[in-house]
Design a protein around this nucleic acid. Structure first.
Ligand code: MN
Ligand code: MN
Ligand code: ZN
Ligand code: ZN
Lengths: 148, 148
DNA sequence: TGATAGTTGCAACAAATTTGCAAGTTGATC
DNA sequence: GATCAACTTGCAAATTTGTTGCAACTATCA
């Protein structure tokens, strides 16, 4: 996840909504906010435990579901390049897409204006009210192109 | 899946590549080619069995993996609106996106030129060679908007 | 500080997918 | 059409990923 303006405080958003801030939730949102890569539930579980927090995977799933439903994190498929877990990242105002190299697994993020054009088009053509847009691209990165 | 020009014959593409056409593979590509909705592995398993073909789920998974690797079908997440299975459809020349209603589960397909613009942009900005682009949108359909 | 509603961990379950291997089938060749 | 090697399948078991019910615990507020 590229340099984001590290606006922390999912925590305050949660307590504003009257949601209790437990140790477990604190560590999880902390990890998600400060992550420099996309995390899946097991990542979160192990990283939290490394920091000495007692935590069960049930709670990880429950917390991620809650954050997703509140619109505070996005769930990514990342093309399941390896395993079938889903990945999570904080939700940004400005959308970006994910490009995965099917050869080395590297994930690249890219900001593009195509996304808002697309949203306009969808709204206009279909009348759907858009909640989230997920664009994921399978590709071969320049490094891997050279190697073959 | 909206009216496609029913170009059959994944079968011949497979045998051209020297891949054996077993009963199981025949029925599976048949079902995928003639489907009027997105299918997941269990759909395929049951539909094939209904047609009297002996088939195991292992074979369904193996066949789908093969077709995907050959670039003949696309795998869709469809936002896992209900369950965590993945869905499959034949690959078209002209791409389309999938819009799922988070309230009723309906899936809408939409053709858009944004996709090829996006590909151009990715190529130019990153040098990645694109294999597939998957855009999936979570939204609320007009019907469900009225109901709330 | 206590009451209370919300949250957690645990164990068991369920769903989705993969693996190893023996037995069966395909398609090329004669 | 019969033969055969290579490929493919089904089956049973395992793995991976995610969910549920419930008793014990804890965050928040008065
Ligand atoms: Mn489709
Ligand atoms: Mn998925
Ligand atoms: Zn690569
Ligand atoms: Zn709807």
């Amino acid at each position: 996840m590229p340099k984001r303006n590290q606006q922390p405080e999912l925590a305050s958003k949660l307590s504003d909504k009257g949601i209790r801030l437990t140790k477990q939730r604190r560590i999880l949102i902390d990890l998600i906010e400060s992550a420099n890569q996309h995390l899946h539930p097991s990542d979160l579980l192990y990283q939290a435990r490394e920091k000495g927090v007692k935590l069960d995977r049930t709670t990880v799933y429950r917390t991620l579901t809650m954050l997703k439903e509140l619109g505070l994190v996005e769930e990514l498929d990342l093309l399941h390049l390896n395993g079938h877990e889903h990945y999570y990242e904080i939700r940004h105002d400005r959308g970006h897409i994910h490009i995965g190299c099917i050869s080395c697994g590297k994930i690249l993020e890219l900001h593009t204006d195509c996304l808002s054009d697309l949203c306009d088009e969808i709204r206009q053509k279909t009348g759907f009210i858009i909640k989230t847009v997920r664009t994921e691209v399978a590709a071969v990165c320049p490094d891997c192109q050279r190697k073959t």
